[in-house]
């Protein structure tokens, strides 16, 4: 675990010898404000290493510098100070983006193209060979589940479909690093769950995923490591399991006990020098209930159908 105080020095790879996909070293970014030469500091001396093959979550409130950091990684912004390397290549160089796929926040694409045309356009921009072009476009649209809507114009897509086609264009050139900026923003829980499962599939394929999200529960479910930014500074960084797990506590889930048996359990624990700290009824998460009910309604429609 890295604290804010430790973050001011350049971060090394999380485990020695592990390859690093993104390496930010002392990155600072100032934006000019107004005509008098005043500058606003969006990122302040940020040092971070994203290990290859992992899902890395970049967290923080609005204005914390997450998007600015991602733009620096993509070479869209030039850092005022510090260095940023993507797979060892300085991010200012075009070469650094050869193996990067990017899904921007609330993506907007050329509305007059169909989904397939859009993915094909980006595939050609990324240099996918012509002989593999059609197969690769089909493959990636199938991967994101948009085969049925591939011929429709992007302008008619729902928000969830836009995210999927955005993911398809990000993956079409088979990048090793995928950057997803708020991929679930504005997407319903069902779509959000699908995106989560896609992220895990990306990880299983050996890709590195850098993700920013406001949905902390989702981050927790899919990320191996996270970093928290606040007002441009790194305040916390580490493995999710280490950050959220409490090794000195355990939760046992049993069938509901009558008061007498509960009292016996307390006595039993006390005899061993332990204490029962709290007794609670486990609550299902709302998104789980939503997904279960939507699935059930879908099954019902299938059964009632012709």
């Amino acid at each position: 675990m890295t604290t804010a105080a430790e973050a001011s020095v350049p971060a090394a790879a999380p485990s020695s010898g592990a390859p690093v996909a993104i390496d930010l070293c002392g990155v600072t970014k100032d934006f000019p404000v107004g005509l008098r030469g005043l500058k606003l500091r969006a990122v302040d001396n940020l040092s971070l290493a994203v290990p290859a093959g992992q899902v890395f979550g970049l967290l923080g409130p609005n204005g914390s510098g997450k998007s600015t950091t991602i733009k620096i990684v993509l070479g869209l912004l030039e850092p005022t100070a510090g260095t940023c390397r993507v797979v060892g290549v300085p991010s200012a160089q075009v070469e650094s983006r050869r193996n990067v796929g990017y899904l921007p926040e609330a993506p907007y694409f050329y509305r007059y193209l169909s989904g397939a045309e859009l993915v094909r356009f980006y595939a050609r921009v990324c240099g996918v060979p012509r002989q593999r072009l059609d197969a690769r476009v089909r493959e990636v649209l199938d991967w994101v589940g948009l085969t049925g809507a591939a011929a429709r114009r992007v302008g008619t897509y729902s928000k969830g479909m836009l995210q999927r086609v955005g993911l398809a264009q990000a993956l079409v050139h088979d990048p090793r690093l995928v950057i997803l900026d708020e991929p679930t923003a504005g997407v319903d829980p069902a779509g959000s769950a699908e995106i989560s499962s896609m992220i895990l599939r990306l990880k299983s394929e050996g890709r590195t995923v850098l993700i920013t999200s406001h949905l902390l529960a989702q981050i927790e479910d899919v990320c191996d490591r996270i970093a928290i930014l606040d007002r441009g500074r790194l305040i916390l960084e580490g493995a999710v399991a280490e950050l959220v797990g409490r090794r000195d506590r355990q939760a046992l889930i049993v069938e509901a006990l009558p008061p007498g048996e509960l009292a016996e359990l307390r006595v039993w624990l006390a005899a061993r020098g332990r204490a029962l700290e709290s007794v609670e009824q486990p609550r299902a998460r709302l998104d789980e209930i939503f997904l279960r009910e939507v699935a059930r309604a879908g099954d019902g429609r299938k059964e009632a159908g012709p």
């Binding site: 008098r36 005043l38 500091r41």
Partner: peptide, 9 residues
């Protein structure tokens, strides 16, 4: 966020 003063590029 900090403010500093330099000549615009």
């Amino acid at each position: 966020m900090k403010f500093s003063l330099t000549l615009p590029r």
